[in-house]
Write a protein that binds this DNA or RNA. Structure first.
Lengths: 217, 217
DNA sequence: TCAAAAAATCACCCAATGGGGTATTGTATC
DNA sequence: GATACAATACCCCATTGGGTGATTTTTTGA
């Protein structure tokens, strides 16, 4: 009967691929319904195999696992994706999480962990290896999360100052800003000083960052 | 000898409080070193009990657990904080994570899970209950927040460069950095240039921002 | 093991930036 | 009319950023 969890494998290493297939097909309750060595034909692969869960390797030739995850998530949102990688790379992990992965395990996890994780994502859970959880926590505590502020802060920039700020955002130097705004170099500097005071910043890059993030200028 | 994990409890419910104390003191390897029914005297409480791990309830009269977590984290960053709550409220979880919690368990978890989690945070891990992990994942996938994703966590900074970057983060100018690092002003500048190239930034403030956000240096 | 690469050190030049002050003019606003 | 502020402009000076080039030591790789 069809009570088995259908799992599709995306994995470029043949040894790992075969091992995973053997484990899945050798365990009651799991079926390996598709095997892909790369992400190039991901759409056909998914349509053909109709998986419940995709076991996705990040490092693959052609499209990488993160891109394929994003695409599968966009096109087949009901399919759960379990990322597996040897890498413990923060950047990759966050990209994968943002791409819509449902869980994250490390390749050196033992087979029974794989099966547990597959079962967990299938049942709506979010299996995450301890080291990944730690990275996620660090992400929150390191204040990398910025709440989208619609328009709470008003820095009272004058029209002219907004204009100058816009020119700064565009990367013009003081001389160029002076030319474009038909004022002297020194006046540009005066405006910039005022802008910095109003924005509570102390450098061009900070001002530009704030301007872009909060749609000033 | 003193190999036991010192745990301080912040919990307003007396029954739960007493139960936790009994469990901790009744288990080898754990000591309950402090019990607080609210967060009002958190600073005195922490100074007196000197805990390794704080078991923090979110719902407390006076200061809530999230505020206390923030304060403890600011003042005693070496103390690990394990949040425990009955609530499954995304907003609260998110706030707690940002406040600097090291782990997150649910109140209806069995005692052995509590002990495991305490042990895990004590050893630098990040115990997170499955449902919290799921919510964290949701934060990444449902664009509720703007995430400034690390743009390449390994910038290959040398030890010396990290040292210089740390001094920059601390706000020292080149002259001071030179003095503190026992090198010449010009060498500091050379290091800074290399750091900028590696981080793909062009100013002190950008470099410092990146360093803080991504825990470089 | 030897050569190449990378890291660490220092120096000089020059342009751009940031912070402080001062000053004049016009325009509101009270 | 006084006061405030925006916009304009100039001065001085310290700091920063970018380029080039060089020597020494350490590390790495072939």
């Amino acid at each position: 009967m069809g009570m088995e969890i259908r799992v599709a494998i995306f994995e470029d290493n043949k040894l790992v691929r075969d091992a995973l297939e053997a484990i899945l097909n050798g365990t009651p309750g799991y079926t390996c319904c598709g095997i892909s060595a790369d992400g190039i034909h991901w759409e056909d692969d998914i349509k053909r195999s109709k998986p419940d869960v995709v076991l996705m390797d990040i490092e693959m030739p052609g499209l990488n696992g993160i891109e394929v995850t994003q695409h599968i998530n966009d096109m087949f949102p009901e399919v759960k994706i379990l990322i597996q990688t040897v890498f413990n790379d923060s950047e990759k992990i966050f990209q994968a999480l943002c791409a819509g992965a449902s869980g994250y395990i490390l390749k050196n996890d033992p087979p029974h962990k794989y099966l547990e994780a597959i079962n967990e994502v299938y049942n709506g859970g979010a299996p995450i290896s301890s080291s990944v959880a730690k990275k996620m926590l660090g992400f929150f505590t390191n204040k990398n999360v910025v709440l989208t502020v619609p328009g709470g802060t008003d820095y009272q920039l004058s029209d002219r100052e907004k204009e100058i700020l816009r020119l700064m955002v565009d990367g013009n130097n003081y001389k160029t800003i002076a030319d474009k705004a038909f004022i002297s170099y020194e006046t540009v500097r005066t405006h910039v000083k005022h802008i910095y005071k109003k924005l509570h910043v102390a450098s061009r890059s900070e001002a530009v960052l704030k301007a872009i993030q909060q749609d000033l200028s």
